[in-house]
Protein backbone atom coordinates (compact mmCIF):
# COMPACT_ATOMS: atom_id res chain seq x y z
CA UNK A 1 0.00 0.00 0.00
CA UNK A 2 1.34 3.40 -0.94
CA UNK A 3 0.85 5.20 2.35
CA UNK A 4 2.33 8.48 1.19
CA UNK A 5 -0.54 9.47 -1.07
CA UNK A 6 -3.52 10.37 1.03
CA UNK A 7 -6.80 9.66 -0.74
CA UNK A 8 -8.81 12.44 -2.38
CA UNK A 9 -11.99 11.04 -0.97
CA UNK A 10 -12.43 8.79 1.99
CA UNK A 11 -15.84 7.46 2.97
CA UNK A 12 -16.21 5.76 6.33
CA UNK A 13 -19.22 3.94 7.79
CA UNK A 14 -21.70 5.86 5.70
CA UNK A 15 -25.33 5.02 6.40
CA UNK A 16 -28.40 6.49 4.74
CA UNK A 17 -31.99 5.71 5.65
CA UNK A 18 -35.24 6.80 4.07
CA UNK A 19 -38.34 7.28 6.18
CA UNK A 20 -41.21 5.79 4.24
CA UNK A 21 -44.73 4.74 5.12
CA UNK A 22 -43.61 1.15 5.41
CA UNK A 23 -40.85 2.12 7.81
CA UNK A 24 -37.20 3.02 7.53
CA UNK A 25 -35.51 1.85 4.36
CA UNK A 26 -31.81 1.28 4.96
CA UNK A 27 -30.69 2.20 1.47
CA UNK A 28 -27.00 2.53 2.31
CA UNK A 29 -25.52 0.42 5.02
CA UNK A 30 -22.06 1.08 6.38
CA UNK A 31 -20.19 1.91 3.21
CA UNK A 32 -16.39 2.30 3.35
CA UNK A 33 -14.11 3.19 0.48
CA UNK A 34 -11.17 5.39 -0.46
CA UNK A 35 -10.39 7.07 -3.74
CA UNK A 36 -6.94 8.26 -4.80
CA UNK A 37 -6.30 11.04 -7.25
CA UNK A 38 -6.22 9.91 -10.85
CA UNK A 39 -8.04 6.75 -9.98
CA UNK A 40 -11.20 5.63 -11.76
CA UNK A 41 -13.43 3.75 -9.40
CA UNK A 42 -16.14 1.70 -11.05
CA UNK A 43 -19.29 1.02 -9.07
CA UNK A 44 -21.54 -1.84 -10.16
CA UNK A 45 -24.57 -3.50 -8.70
CA UNK A 46 -28.11 -4.18 -9.80
CA UNK A 47 -30.90 -1.66 -9.78
CA UNK A 48 -31.81 -0.51 -6.28
CA UNK A 49 -28.52 -1.54 -4.72
CA UNK A 50 -27.93 2.00 -3.50
CA UNK A 51 -25.33 3.29 -5.93
CA UNK A 52 -27.01 6.59 -6.68
CA UNK A 53 -28.10 7.18 -3.11
CA UNK A 54 -24.54 6.63 -1.84
CA UNK A 55 -23.07 9.15 -4.27
CA UNK A 56 -25.74 11.78 -3.78
CA UNK A 57 -25.41 11.56 -0.04
CA UNK A 58 -21.72 12.49 -0.34
CA UNK A 59 -22.73 15.97 -1.47
CA UNK A 60 -25.90 16.25 0.55
CA UNK A 61 -28.04 16.10 -2.57
CA UNK A 62 -30.67 13.74 -1.24
CA UNK A 63 -34.04 15.24 -0.40
CA UNK A 64 -34.46 15.28 3.32
CA UNK A 65 -37.00 14.31 4.40
CA UNK A 66 -37.29 11.45 3.52
CA UNK A 67 -33.52 10.83 3.43
CA UNK A 68 -31.40 10.99 6.54
CA UNK A 69 -27.69 10.39 6.91
CA UNK A 70 -27.41 8.02 9.77
CA UNK A 71 -23.75 8.38 10.54
CA UNK A 72 -20.35 8.14 8.94
CA UNK A 73 -17.77 10.57 7.59
CA UNK A 74 -16.90 11.72 4.10
CA UNK A 75 -13.42 13.28 4.04
CA UNK A 76 -12.60 15.39 1.03
CA UNK A 77 -9.50 17.62 1.18
CA UNK A 78 -9.38 17.44 4.94
CA UNK A 79 -13.02 18.35 5.43
CA UNK A 80 -15.91 16.17 6.47
CA UNK A 81 -18.51 16.88 3.79
CA UNK A 82 -21.28 15.69 6.06
CA UNK A 83 -20.41 18.34 8.64
CA UNK A 84 -19.29 21.43 6.69
CA UNK A 85 -21.61 24.42 6.59
CA UNK A 86 -23.92 25.04 3.61
CA UNK A 87 -21.68 27.73 2.19
CA UNK A 88 -18.65 25.46 2.04
CA UNK A 89 -20.51 22.53 0.55
CA UNK A 90 -21.80 24.85 -2.17
CA UNK A 91 -18.23 25.75 -3.05
CA UNK A 92 -17.41 22.08 -3.45
CA UNK A 93 -20.54 21.17 -5.40
CA UNK A 94 -19.97 21.92 -9.04
CA UNK A 95 -16.57 23.39 -8.27
CA UNK A 96 -14.31 20.71 -6.87
CA UNK A 97 -16.73 17.86 -7.33
CA UNK A 98 -18.68 17.54 -10.56
CA UNK A 99 -21.76 15.37 -10.69
CA UNK A 100 -23.39 13.76 -13.72
CA UNK A 101 -26.87 12.50 -12.98
CA UNK A 102 -28.44 9.35 -14.19
CA UNK A 103 -31.40 10.70 -16.13
CA UNK A 104 -30.42 13.16 -18.86
CA UNK A 105 -34.00 13.65 -20.05
CA UNK A 106 -35.11 15.37 -16.86
CA UNK A 107 -31.88 16.63 -15.31
CA UNK A 108 -31.74 19.85 -17.32
CA UNK A 109 -34.06 22.76 -16.64
CA UNK A 110 -36.52 22.94 -19.55
CA UNK A 111 -36.96 26.71 -19.53
CA UNK A 112 -33.34 27.84 -19.71
CA UNK A 113 -31.04 27.60 -22.67
CA UNK A 114 -28.28 25.04 -22.58
CA UNK A 115 -25.71 27.83 -22.72
CA UNK A 116 -27.16 29.50 -19.66
CA UNK A 117 -27.07 26.24 -17.74
CA UNK A 118 -23.45 25.58 -18.58
CA UNK A 119 -22.40 29.11 -17.68
CA UNK A 120 -24.00 28.96 -14.25
CA UNK A 121 -21.20 27.01 -12.53
CA UNK A 122 -18.61 29.04 -14.44
CA UNK A 123 -20.02 32.26 -13.01
CA UNK A 124 -20.40 30.79 -9.58
CA UNK A 125 -17.04 29.07 -9.12
CA UNK A 126 -14.63 30.61 -11.59
CA UNK A 127 -16.00 34.14 -11.56
CA UNK A 128 -16.25 34.15 -15.34
CA UNK A 129 -18.73 36.59 -16.85
CA UNK A 130 -20.01 37.67 -20.22
CA UNK A 131 -17.80 36.86 -23.15
CA UNK A 132 -15.33 34.75 -21.14
CA UNK A 133 -18.01 32.55 -19.65
CA UNK A 134 -19.51 32.10 -23.08
CA UNK A 135 -16.20 31.17 -24.66
CA UNK A 136 -15.53 28.60 -21.98
CA UNK A 137 -19.04 27.18 -22.35
CA UNK A 138 -18.56 26.85 -26.11
CA UNK A 139 -15.24 25.16 -25.48
CA UNK A 140 -16.94 22.69 -23.16
CA UNK A 141 -19.71 21.95 -25.65
CA UNK A 142 -17.06 21.30 -28.23
CA UNK A 143 -15.13 19.13 -25.80
CA UNK A 144 -18.07 16.80 -25.20
CA UNK A 145 -18.67 16.56 -28.92
CA UNK A 146 -21.73 18.72 -29.54
CA UNK A 147 -21.52 19.65 -33.22
CA UNK A 148 -21.73 23.35 -34.04
CA UNK A 149 -21.70 24.62 -30.42
CA UNK A 150 -22.20 28.26 -31.42
CA UNK A 151 -25.53 27.42 -32.98
CA UNK A 152 -26.68 25.10 -30.22
CA UNK A 153 -25.66 27.45 -27.41
CA UNK A 154 -29.01 29.26 -27.28
CA UNK A 155 -31.09 26.12 -27.81
CA UNK A 156 -33.27 24.66 -25.11
CA UNK A 157 -32.94 21.13 -23.73
CA UNK A 158 -36.02 19.87 -25.57
CA UNK A 159 -34.23 20.63 -28.82
CA UNK A 160 -31.53 18.10 -27.93
CA UNK A 161 -31.66 14.33 -28.14
CA UNK A 162 -31.17 12.22 -25.02
CA UNK A 163 -27.56 11.52 -25.85
CA UNK A 164 -26.81 15.19 -26.47
CA UNK A 165 -28.44 16.19 -23.21
CA UNK A 166 -26.27 13.62 -21.50
CA UNK A 167 -23.25 15.31 -23.05
CA UNK A 168 -24.48 18.70 -21.90
CA UNK A 169 -24.71 17.26 -18.40
CA UNK A 170 -21.14 16.05 -18.74
CA UNK A 171 -20.06 19.51 -19.90
CA UNK A 172 -21.70 21.07 -16.83
CA UNK A 173 -20.00 18.60 -14.51
CA UNK A 174 -16.61 19.22 -16.11
CA UNK A 175 -17.07 22.99 -16.32
CA UNK A 176 -14.84 23.99 -13.41
CA UNK A 177 -12.12 21.34 -13.79
CA UNK A 178 -13.24 19.34 -10.77
CA UNK A 179 -10.82 17.25 -8.73
CA UNK A 180 -13.45 14.57 -8.49
CA UNK A 181 -16.07 13.61 -11.03
CA UNK A 182 -19.01 11.46 -10.00
CA UNK A 183 -20.74 9.99 -13.01
CA UNK A 184 -23.99 8.13 -12.44
CA UNK A 185 -24.53 5.93 -15.48
CA UNK A 186 -23.41 8.70 -17.79
CA UNK A 187 -23.40 6.66 -20.96
CA UNK A 188 -26.55 4.57 -20.69
CA UNK A 189 -28.50 6.91 -22.97
CA UNK A 190 -25.79 6.98 -25.60
CA UNK A 191 -25.24 4.75 -28.57
CA UNK A 192 -22.09 2.69 -28.76
CA UNK A 193 -19.91 5.00 -30.83
CA UNK A 194 -20.71 8.04 -28.75
CA UNK A 195 -20.28 6.02 -25.61
CA UNK A 196 -16.81 5.14 -26.85
CA UNK A 197 -16.08 8.81 -27.55
CA UNK A 198 -17.16 9.82 -24.09
CA UNK A 199 -15.07 7.09 -22.49
CA UNK A 200 -12.10 8.23 -24.52
CA UNK A 201 -12.71 11.81 -23.43
CA UNK A 202 -12.92 10.85 -19.78
CA UNK A 203 -9.75 8.78 -20.03
CA UNK A 204 -8.00 11.80 -21.55
CA UNK A 205 -9.20 14.22 -18.92
CA UNK A 206 -8.22 11.87 -16.19
CA UNK A 207 -4.69 11.79 -17.52
CA UNK A 208 -4.52 15.52 -18.25
CA UNK A 209 -6.14 16.86 -15.10
CA UNK A 210 -5.37 14.02 -12.73
CA UNK A 211 -9.05 13.96 -11.95
CA UNK A 212 -10.38 11.17 -9.76
CA UNK A 213 -13.54 9.59 -11.10
CA UNK A 214 -16.35 7.51 -9.69
CA UNK A 215 -18.17 5.77 -12.48
CA UNK A 216 -21.48 4.07 -11.80
CA UNK A 217 -22.70 1.65 -14.42
CA UNK A 218 -24.58 -1.50 -15.18
CA UNK A 219 -22.20 -2.29 -17.97
CA UNK A 220 -19.35 -4.48 -16.80
CA UNK A 221 -17.80 -4.20 -20.22
CA UNK A 222 -17.37 -0.46 -19.71
CA UNK A 223 -15.95 -1.06 -16.26
CA UNK A 224 -13.44 -3.53 -17.62
CA UNK A 225 -12.38 -0.96 -20.19
CA UNK A 226 -11.84 2.12 -18.06
CA UNK A 227 -11.86 1.42 -14.32
CA UNK A 228 -8.76 0.97 -12.22
CA UNK A 229 -10.64 -0.36 -9.23
CA UNK A 230 -14.15 -1.74 -8.82
CA UNK A 231 -16.72 -1.76 -6.05
CA UNK A 232 -19.56 -4.24 -6.23
CA UNK A 233 -22.64 -3.17 -4.30
CA UNK A 234 -25.54 -5.27 -3.14
CA UNK A 235 -28.52 -4.11 -1.06
CA UNK A 236 -26.80 -0.98 0.18
CA UNK A 237 -23.54 -2.68 1.04
CA UNK A 238 -20.19 -3.23 -0.63
CA UNK A 239 -19.77 -6.94 -1.13
CA UNK A 240 -16.51 -6.90 -3.02
CA UNK A 241 -13.78 -4.44 -3.90
CA UNK A 242 -10.65 -5.07 -5.95
CA UNK A 243 -8.46 -3.81 -8.76
CA UNK A 244 -10.12 -4.30 -12.07
CA UNK A 245 -7.85 -7.06 -13.41
CA UNK A 246 -8.02 -8.91 -10.13
CA UNK A 247 -11.80 -8.67 -9.98
CA UNK A 248 -12.35 -10.05 -13.44
CA UNK A 249 -9.66 -12.69 -13.09
CA UNK A 250 -10.55 -13.74 -9.58
CA UNK A 251 -14.08 -12.84 -8.57
CA UNK A 252 -14.72 -14.10 -5.06
CA UNK A 253 -18.21 -13.19 -3.91
CA UNK A 254 -20.95 -15.40 -5.38
CA UNK A 255 -22.82 -12.26 -6.39
CA UNK A 256 -19.85 -10.90 -8.33
CA UNK A 257 -19.44 -14.21 -10.03
CA UNK A 258 -23.06 -14.20 -11.03
CA UNK A 259 -22.64 -10.67 -12.36
CA UNK A 260 -19.63 -11.51 -14.43
CA UNK A 261 -21.50 -14.51 -15.72
CA UNK A 262 -24.06 -12.16 -17.20
CA UNK A 263 -21.71 -10.25 -19.45
CA UNK A 264 -22.91 -10.89 -22.99
CA UNK A 265 -20.49 -12.67 -25.25
CA UNK A 266 -20.55 -9.99 -27.93
CA UNK A 267 -18.94 -6.79 -26.78
CA UNK A 268 -20.75 -3.67 -27.87
CA UNK A 269 -24.15 -5.22 -27.44
CA UNK A 270 -25.78 -3.36 -24.54
CA UNK A 271 -25.01 -5.35 -21.38
CA UNK A 272 -28.01 -7.17 -20.04
CA UNK A 273 -29.54 -5.58 -16.97
CA UNK A 274 -28.02 -7.29 -14.00
CA UNK A 275 -31.22 -8.64 -12.58
CA UNK A 276 -30.99 -11.69 -14.75
CA UNK A 277 -29.62 -13.27 -11.59
CA UNK A 278 -32.19 -15.58 -10.03
CA UNK A 279 -34.46 -13.91 -7.47
CA UNK A 280 -34.99 -10.24 -6.71
CA UNK A 281 -33.02 -7.51 -5.06
CA UNK A 282 -34.28 -7.06 -1.51
CA UNK A 283 -35.64 -3.92 0.04
CA UNK A 284 -33.90 -3.34 3.30
CA UNK A 285 -36.48 -2.42 5.88
CA UNK A 286 -34.23 -3.40 8.74
CA UNK A 287 -30.55 -3.13 9.23
CA UNK A 288 -29.69 -6.67 8.21
CA UNK A 289 -28.23 -9.12 10.70
CA UNK A 290 -27.72 -11.63 7.92
CA UNK A 291 -26.13 -11.67 4.50
CA UNK A 292 -28.58 -9.87 2.22
CA UNK A 293 -27.63 -12.08 -0.67
CA UNK A 294 -28.29 -15.41 1.03
CA UNK A 295 -31.79 -16.01 -0.40
CA UNK A 296 -30.32 -15.93 -3.89
CA UNK A 297 -26.99 -17.60 -3.12
CA UNK A 298 -26.24 -21.18 -4.14
CA UNK A 299 -23.64 -21.52 -1.42
CA UNK A 300 -25.55 -20.12 1.54
CA UNK A 301 -25.22 -21.99 4.82
CA UNK A 302 -26.61 -21.45 8.32
CA UNK A 303 -24.22 -18.65 9.27
CA UNK A 304 -25.39 -16.59 6.31
CA UNK A 305 -28.89 -16.28 7.78
CA UNK A 306 -27.78 -15.09 11.19
CA UNK A 307 -24.66 -12.91 10.79
CA UNK A 308 -24.00 -10.08 8.35
CA UNK A 309 -20.52 -10.71 6.87
CA UNK A 310 -17.90 -7.95 7.18
CA UNK A 311 -15.81 -6.64 4.33
CA UNK A 312 -12.35 -8.11 4.93
CA UNK A 313 -9.16 -8.15 2.95
CA UNK A 314 -9.07 -11.54 1.34
CA UNK A 315 -6.04 -11.11 -0.87
CA UNK A 316 -3.83 -8.08 -1.28
CA UNK A 317 -6.14 -5.08 -2.02
CA UNK A 318 -9.03 -7.43 -2.56
CA UNK A 319 -11.87 -7.11 -0.09
CA UNK A 320 -14.83 -9.47 0.13
CA UNK A 321 -17.84 -9.64 2.44
CA UNK A 322 -18.79 -13.30 2.50
CA UNK A 323 -18.77 -15.99 5.16
CA UNK A 324 -17.35 -18.47 2.69
CA UNK A 325 -13.98 -16.79 2.90
CA UNK A 326 -13.69 -16.06 6.55
CA UNK A 327 -11.69 -19.22 7.01
CA UNK A 328 -8.95 -18.64 4.50
CA UNK A 329 -8.39 -21.13 1.83
CA UNK A 330 -12.00 -22.00 1.10
CA UNK A 331 -12.73 -21.49 -2.55
CA UNK A 332 -15.97 -21.63 -4.32
CA UNK A 333 -16.18 -24.08 -7.19
Amino acid sequence: MAEDISPVLSVKDLKVVFSTRKGEVHAVNTINFDLNSGELLGVVGESGSGKSVTMMSLLGLLPSPPARINGGTVSFEGKDLLKVNPKEIRKIRGGEIGFIFQDPMTSLNPVFSVGFQIMEPLKKHMGLTGRKAQDRALELLDLVGIPDPKKRFKDYPHQFSGGMRQRVMIAIALACDPKLLIADEPTTALDVTIQAQILELVRDLRKKLGMAIIWITHDLGVIAGIATRVIVMYAGQIVEQANVEELFANPQHPYTKALIGTIPAVRGERAKRLNSIRGQAPTTLREPHFCSFHPRCDFAFDKCTSINPQLIEQRKNHLVACHLFEDKGVTVG
Binding site: L59, L61, R90, I92, G94, F101, T106, E120, K124, H125
Partner: peptide, 22 residues
Protein backbone atom coordinates in the same frame (compact mmCIF):
# COMPACT_ATOMS: atom_id res chain seq x y z
CA UNK B 1 -39.28 17.36 -6.86
CA UNK B 2 -37.95 17.57 -10.39
CA UNK B 3 -34.51 16.29 -11.26
CA UNK B 4 -33.33 19.63 -12.62
CA UNK B 5 -33.56 21.10 -9.11
CA UNK B 6 -30.99 18.58 -7.96
CA UNK B 7 -28.79 19.49 -10.92
CA UNK B 8 -29.02 23.16 -9.93
CA UNK B 9 -28.01 22.30 -6.37
CA UNK B 10 -25.17 20.13 -7.63
CA UNK B 11 -23.77 23.18 -9.41
CA UNK B 12 -23.31 24.80 -6.03
CA UNK B 13 -25.98 27.44 -6.57
CA UNK B 14 -27.36 29.17 -3.53
CA UNK B 15 -30.72 27.96 -2.32
CA UNK B 16 -32.47 31.21 -3.19
CA UNK B 17 -31.12 31.04 -6.74
CA UNK B 18 -32.29 27.45 -7.06
CA UNK B 19 -35.69 28.45 -5.77
CA UNK B 20 -36.26 31.87 -7.32
CA UNK B 21 -34.56 31.27 -10.66
CA UNK B 22 -34.87 27.60 -11.48
Amino acid sequence: NQDYVRTARAKGLRENVVLLVH
